[in-house]
């Protein structure tokens, strides 16, 4: 068939293949019909089943799984040292140092005055969700946790249902540090449906700290509109964190058990992000504790983080 033939390049409709078989349009009707039926069925299921399932609230506190607790707080030193501050997939920001500020101290259970670490966040907040993993791990190197609970960030926010923990009933015991936390809101809406249900109210002193330090003046890269955003962590008024140290997207698609289970694997990208942040925070905490305990503060992972942060 010569290609140069105009007639043959544009064959008349009657020259088109008039094969036997199914009538024209049958495929279209079948396809449209199937799609419409499936979508209609989904819409009916959605409408008849009501709104989204309620996410667990703090009124139904769910204690952390003991296995997860162990994986979270007994990470091998080799993992901290292997990871150091190497997180090839997710960028990790270290705490920012502030100077010439009055020391933030509190009295520990033994009656000693020690540096205080203040966390302010909320259960709905996906950025707080990401931050808690690394903060819990860092603090576990200086003391012991109890009362941690399972939590997920709000289901209809960005990074929905990010797996994490809640500090609402957490207790932290350390000879070096005092940890205080404020979870201001739950991860579900109040009865009016206008905002998240209120949980804990910060003291006037805590409000004063976030009002003063969670500002562009102290946090590089923070805009005026982002002032007093959460999560906010004040490490003895010497280091600050405002916002998640790494993106919650790092945790997307992984369950709490999967994330915790991978913490002993230094080649996991999720572990790399969490441990890098934990090493940075540990370096900041070591500055507060005058490098105590020595086995933690002198470890190569923490020393690498301290060097990168300019801590002497």
């Amino acid at each position: 068939m010569p290609k140069s033939s105009r007639h043959q390049r544009r064959p008349a409709p009657s020259k088109a293949p008039a094969k036997g078989g199914r009538p024209a349009g049958l495929f279209t009707w079948i396809a449209v019909g199937l799609v419409v039926v499936v979508v209609a069925a989904l819409v009916i299921i959605k409408v008849t089943s009501g709104g989204p399932a309620k996410t667990p609230s703090s009124s139904t506190f769910q204690p952390i799984n003991p296995g997860v607790m162990t994986e979270l707080t007994t990470i091998p030193a080799s993992v901290f040292n292997t990871v150091g501050i190497t997180s090839p997939i997710a960028a990790v920001d270290p705490p920012q140092s502030v100077s010439k500020q009055p020391a933030l101290v509190a009295t520990n259970s033994a009656g000693a005055s020690v540096p205080e670490v203040l966390y302010m966040g909320a259960e709905y907040c996906p950025y707080c969700a990401a931050q808690r993993w690394a903060t819990i791990i860092a603090l576990s190197r200086f003391g012991t946790w109890s009362g941690l609970g399972n939590m997920s960030s709000y289901s209809n926010d960005v990074y929905p249902n990010t797996p994490t923990f809640t500090f609402i009933k957490a207790k932290y015991k350390s000879q070096y540090l005092v940890f205080k936390s404020v979870e201001e809101y739950t991860n579900y809406l109040d009865t009016a449906g206008t905002y998240y249900a209120k949980l804990q109210t910060p003291t006037s002193g805590e409000v004063a700290l976030i009002s003063k330090y969670d500002q562009p003046k102290y946090i590089k890269g923070l805009t005026a509109a982002e002032a007093e955003s959460i999560p906010f962590i004040d490490y003895g008024n010497q280091f600050l964190v405002a916002g998640a140290s790494y993106s919650p997207s790092t945790l997307t698609g992984s369950s709490r058990n999967e994330i915790a289970g991978a913490l002993s694997n230094a080649s996991s990208p999720i572990t790399d992000a969490i441990i890098t942040s934990a090493n940075y925070q540990t370096a900041a905490l070591c500055k507060l504790t005058n490098n105590q305990p020595g086995d933690v503060c002198m470890s190569s992972g923490v020393q690498t983080a301290a060097k990168a942060m300019g801590i002497k």
Binding site: P13, A16, P17
Partner: peptide, 10 residues
């Protein structure tokens, strides 16, 4: 086009 059904024009 693939010959699986009759053309609309046929």
């Amino acid at each position: 086009q693939l010959g699986w059904s009759r053309s609309r024009a046929s």
